[in-house]
Design a protein around this nucleic acid. Sequence first.
DNA 1: ACCATAGTTTACGTTAACGTAAACGTAGGC
DNA 2: GCCTACGTTTACGTTAACGTAAACTATGGT
Lengths: 126, 126
Amino acid sequence: MTDRSYSISQLASEFGITTRTIRFYEEKGLIHPRRQGQKRVYSAGDRVRIKLILRGKRIGMSLQESVEVIDLYDPAHNNRGQLHSLIRTVQDKRERLLRQKRDIEDMLAGLDEVQALCEQGLENAD
Amino acid sequence: MTDRSYSISQLASEFGITTRTIRFYEEKGLIHPRRQGQKRVYSAGDRVRIKLILRGKRIGMSLQESVEVIDLYDPAHNNRGQLHSLIRTVQDKRERLLRQKRDIEDMLAGLDEVQALCEQGLENAD
DNA sequence: ACCATAGTTTACGTTAACGTAAACGTAGGC
DNA sequence: GCCTACGTTTACGTTAACGTAAACTATGGT
């Protein structure tokens, strides 16, 4: 199906990051591309992982936190018997995200006020 | 009105940070407490600034970015004549925040799925 | 044969945001 | 008079997340 593969520079330019960054992520164990000779070849899954890592970064997660979340989706990491602790982990993540969401909404509300004042200032200037 | 004042350790314990952190913020010009002798005395305004800085941090802003946003609220920095560029700045901040909000909502949706799978797993185990 | 392009490894450099420690001042309590 | 708590300055250390540079390999084109 989605068995496309990508070179390192393809992904770098797609995501607006450097190849150094992608190799760094591998060095840190965040991704595991396969090799053709000595060249790295990235699968669709590798690509998604990078995408999710960058999403995490945008909302202020560390790389480690991002992969923690990503690996929640990964059935391989979800050994049964730890379902309860996994649910607690999910709950923790959710609470933090909800707080971040509130923070963002508060900040947006503040910006609304500022903008209103600006536009008022412009009217007066006319 | 809110002319209370605070010691450095009061604010540190209230916000769960160290005094070192607060002095560091001053060193970087983020806050400007007044002095009594050589001791720092923080006003209600100083306290709010710290609170807003920490809010920024929670959503992944750098300290510099946080004060940028905070200073948007500050009329002292809003010299008229730059209203247009200020509005553009506000718009930029808003777009980024909206994207972060989408990222968070996506991640929350992902967590919902994981949790559903977990609970399903628990039912089967009963 | 030669060059440009894309890839590789190895290693040192850099920035932000503090932590940690030393060495000292000062005010209150016993 | 001494200890304790709280404050100060100065300075070096630390971690994360890459940047930058050097030196090399592999390959397709002319």
